[in-house]
């Protein structure tokens, strides 16, 4: 399947080296410290299975290998914490975090609603909507486009999250200020992507619309918007992560007594690291789900695009 040449380059014949080196590594580290040896042995065994699976190829391996890798990391994390007796104020074990999540589901749900739904989602909708609207409004003015594109490109590279304290001052501690930070953070990346997307329809296609006698708006909605969708969704996917970051970071500058950012900063102060990691797990889950939903909608909307045709 793969054309990569795996043999040679080490001087020995590959199979012997491949068997010998891991065993040697385990024995050496085990001789120094049996705990190290156990961790290294587990890692190498899992990696060996992954290598074998990866070499087989196919759909199944493609699905199993990453999962196995993730599980290996979790197990090694657990093992390291237990074997070396790492204090839980530095790094709690995954099992401890899982127990904490199971214990405090209502608390986590409340924080999730406050931060992800009220703060991030509303800001995401307003910011991305406004960016698309602005892109359409300035679409007919080449002058404004030429002026705004470099400014927007520049603004997209700025540390906009730094405006969070200012916005918290203006809009108060509740979710409105978080939504405002999110709006600012997602606006420029979205604007740049939408503007780039609107230039995607080819000259021939636009000529065709003209020969049909299509108005500007007909051409926009029937041709240029659909053609811009891959870019628009690229922007939307980038903005999902930005939105969550903005909402959580803004809570560090003041928030009501719930919310993921608030919980993280207070739990760190109380050295309740298992709760912090529980919030992180929720944030990671929310971020991945948000991204995944966008990717699914993208697949449904831009089914015609080469990148979606597997």
């Amino acid at each position: 399947m793969s054309a990569v040449d795996d043999s040679g380059s080490f001087g020995w014949s590959a199979p012997r080296w491949r068997l010998f080196a891991p065993v040697l590594a385990v024995l050496l580290t085990g001789a120094v410290n049996w705990r190290f040896g156990a961790v290294v042995a587990l890692w190498l065994a899992a990696w060996g299975v992954n290598t074998l699976l990866a070499r087989q190829g196919g759909r199944v391996a493609r699905a199993i290998v990453p999962v196995l890798f993730g599980l290996t990391l979790l197990v090694i994390w657990e093992l390291v914490v237990r074997l070396f007796a790492v204090p839980s104020v530095i790094l709690p074990a995954p099992s401890m975090i899982a127990a904490r999540i199971a214990d405090s589901l209502p608390l986590l749900w409340g924080d999730f609603v406050q931060t992800a739904i009220k703060g991030a989602l509303s800001g995401f909708a307003i910011g991305c909507g406004a960016a698309v609207l602005v892109a359409v409004l300035i679409d007919r003015s080449a002058f404004l486009q030429k002026g705004l594109l470099p400014v927007a490109n520049f603004a997209a590279a700025l540390p906009i999250v730094g405006t969070a304290p200012v916005l918290v001052m203006w809009f108060g501690f509740d979710w409105e200020s978080k939504a405002a930070v999110v709006v600012l953070m997602v606006f420029f990346p979205m604007l740049v992507n939408t503007m780039a997307g609107l230039t995607q329809a080819g000259a021939m296609q636009r000529d065709l619309m003209q020969t049909y006698g299509a108005t500007y708006w007909q051409a926009l909605f029937k041709l240029r918007f659909p053609a811009a969708m891959p870019f628009i969704f690229n922007g939307l996917k980038i903005c999902t992560t930005l939105a969550l970051i903005g909402a959580i970071v803004a809570e560090f500058f003041g928030s009501p007594v719930r919310g993921m950012g608030f919980r993280i900063s207070t739990a760190v102060g109380q050295l309740a690291l298992d709760l912090v990691w529980a919030e992180i797990a929720v944030a990671a889950l929310a971020g991945s789900a948000f991204y995944g939903i966008m990717a699914l909608i993208e697949r449904w909307v831009t089914f015609w695009h080469p990148s979606q045709r597997h």
Partner: peptide, 29 residues
């Protein structure tokens, strides 16, 4: 190839984690 299959998806997933949000915790720890 094994690294391609196992690391790449997690590298992408790692970016959906709002790392900036947990930055203060990392600093404190």
């Amino acid at each position: 190839r094994a690294m391609d299959l196992s690391v790449m998806p997690w590298a992408i997933a790692s970016q959906t984690i709002p790392i900036l949000a947990i930055a203060p915790m990392i600093i404190v720890v």
